[in-house]
């Protein structure tokens, strides 16, 4: 009985903030700020959604750029995920299967890059991007995000590759596959659940990233997290518009997660036990 109570508690703890986000997005501002607060809005409205999606006379600049920001986020997060999956899977396979000089040091070095706080490297990154003329470009964000998503993916995927018995790969090699052929035809299909889980993880990291996007983008490539923060003025935040933006921004990762749900469950447990 206790276990069910805990499950319900964890479920509420996880879902309640998202419910409040949806409720806030369909409430009117005065009702949202009323004391005592209440869960069900008395006058629910989709006005903020209409404003963001279709625009209007009093639409703010942030709302007008929302669709563009969605596009930017999809381009950046999508390309980071795709490239990091390709490079990351080859790299983590190499670290798992090949024994070469400096392997351990290289692995630790990759891990060490994750320990540098973003704020400590923002000026050098800004200067590099400025000199390469990559400020406010998708490519600039793509390169920056890849620099921290890729190491994460390499480490996570190594766990999955270790679960695949090397004998299967040897059998493929004996049947005439090259090492790359065995990787593509045998290892990667077996590691698909892990790749799906890691891919979604990479997508979410790139999708939610705020700090680098804030500094490195201007108008053309502004991503969703930065744009949502702009539903505010000197005197405070526009909670209704921010919540609406939040609900819409959370849809792509949720859809992605639901689509690959089957793989994710397999993938999450797949890397837990080494073969």
């Amino acid at each position: 009985m206790l276990i069910y109570a805990l499950v319900v508690l964890i479920f509420l703890f996880t879902v309640a903030p998202f419910c409040w986000l949806i409720i806030s997005s369909i409430s009117i501002k005065t009702e949202l700020l009323s004391v005592p607060p209440h869960w069900i809005p008395k006058n629910p409205t989709l006005r903020s959604y209409k404003e963001i999606i279709f625009g209007g006379v009093r639409t703010t600049r942030a709302a007008r750029y929302f669709k563009q920001a969605v596009g930017n986020s999809i381009i950046v997060a999508g390309s980071v995920t795709a490239l990091c999956l390709v490079i990351g899977s080859v790299a983590s396979y190499s670290f798992t299967r090949l024994r070469f000089r400096g392997r351990r040091s290289l692995l630790l070095m990759i891990l060490a890059t994750q320990m540098i706080p973003a704020v400590g490297i923002i000026i050098p990154i800004y200067v590099i991007m400025m000199n390469l003329h990559l400020l406010d470009t998708h490519l600039g964000l793509f390169v920056t995000y890849s620099s921290f998503v890729l190491p994460l993916m390499i480490w996570i995927m190594m766990g999955y590759f270790q679960t695949i018995p090397i004998d299967i790969e040897d059998a493929a090699r004996m049947d005439g596959c090259s090492r790359l052929g065995a990787l593509v035809r045998v290892v990667l299909p077996l590691a698909a659940p892990g790749l799906a889980a890691t891919g979604i993880f990479a997508f979410i990291v790139a999708w939610n990233e705020f700090f680098f996007a804030l500094i490195l983008t201007e108008t053309a490539t502004k991503t969703l997290p930065v744009l949502i923060s702009e539903f505010s003025t000197k005197f405070g935040a526009d909670y209704v518009m921010m919540s609406t933006g939040g609900v819409l921004a959370s849809l792509p990762p949720v859809i992605l997660a639901l689509t690959f749900q089957r793989f994710i469950i397999k993938g999450l447990t797949g890397g837990a036990i080494k073969g």
Partner: peptide, 15 residues
């Protein structure tokens, strides 16, 4: 025009 939220404009401008 490059806009930024009020609390973040300094983070963007100073670098």
């Amino acid at each position: 025009i490059v806009s930024a939220s009020w609390d973040r404009v300094a983070d963007k401008l100073l670098p």
